[in-house]
């Protein structure tokens, strides 16, 4: 790292990363099944850093850390029916990560390698300032270990040559049953994920916060107009049905 001395601390952001490994999350395809949440919790409890706490898991006030959570939103367009959209949210590994620069100890850092934002837990004093600096709620203080937990992009999976090649991607991506999560290099305009973002008009979350998130979200596609073949049979003010439906209408009337 080079530059003026006041920009060369460990929590200063790298001027450039060699790749931007990120997720592309398809809000059109996600069904909100929480498989990615479970896979993430499972993998990250057994791997990088301290296990993810589950305090009072069967008691009155259970609380635990998760690196990935799924919100659900109702969106009502000006015309037409409301849509229900499931919205997975985890660390977006921002280029201008505000969580990194506020860290007083150097525990939070952004790797030049692939731009992954990590927490060195043995340096973390648990002050919580990084979680305050993150607009997305991607960091959670672990209730058990009192250190900050966040998505590691499954850094110990994606480079792990002991795993079969198809498993060298984040646990959430590997497990998603609907293919709503895509993983790749977003700095390469020819990569599959970059192409997907270009085709579907991928967006940044909270662009006005100027964090330059690496992860991209694909907005839901417009819905088809509803087709319901049996609806005319229930429409008491409708016209008399013709053809097959007309025959069915008459037959049903005879029954009643």
């Amino acid at each position: 790292m080079c530059g003026p001395f006041w920009r060369t601390g460990r929590t200063s952001l790298p001027t450039q990363t060699n790749k931007k490994l990120g997720l592309v999350i398809d809000l059109d395809t996600c069904v909100g099944c929480n498989a990615c949440v479970t896979a993430c919790k499972g993998w990250n409890t057994e791997n990088y850093g301290a296990p993810l706490a589950d305090v009072d898991a069967y008691g009155e006030a259970p609380v635990g850390s998760f690196l990935n959570r799924i919100h659900s939103y109702e969106v009502q367009p000006d015309q037409g029916v409301a849509q229900l959209i499931h919205f997975p949210k985890s660390c977006l590994h921002c280029e201008d990560a505000p969580c990194v620069t506020v860290c007083p100890t150097g525990a939070s850092y952004k790797r030049v390698e692939a731009g992954i934002v990590l927490v060195n837990e043995t340096d973390c004093i648990g002050c919580g300032l990084c979680a305050w600096a993150c607009p997305y709620g991607a960091r959670e203080m672990d209730a058990g270990e009192k250190v900050m937990k966040k998505c590691t992009r499954c850094v110990e999976r994606i480079y792990n040559e002991n795993l079969p090649e198809e498993d060298r991607e984040p646990a959430c991506v590997r497990t998603c049953p609907t293919g709503a999560r895509h993983f790749g290099d977003l700095s390469d305009p020819d990569s599959a994920v970059s192409q997907l973002v270009a085709d579907r008009g991928g967006i940044d979350l909270m662009p006005e916060q100027e964090t330059k998130p690496v992860n991209q979200y694909l907005p839901p596609r417009p819905k088809d107009t509803a087709t319901d073949v049996l609806a005319p049979l229930l429409d008491i003010t409708g016209e008399e049905p013709k053809g097959f439906l007309g025959w069915l209408d008459k037959t049903l009337k005879k029954l009643g």
Binding site: G9, P104, C127
Partner: peptide, 11 residues
Amino acid sequence: KAFTQWRSSWL
């Protein structure tokens, strides 16, 4: 350890 990152961190 909080004394180490004075270049970037207000804390």
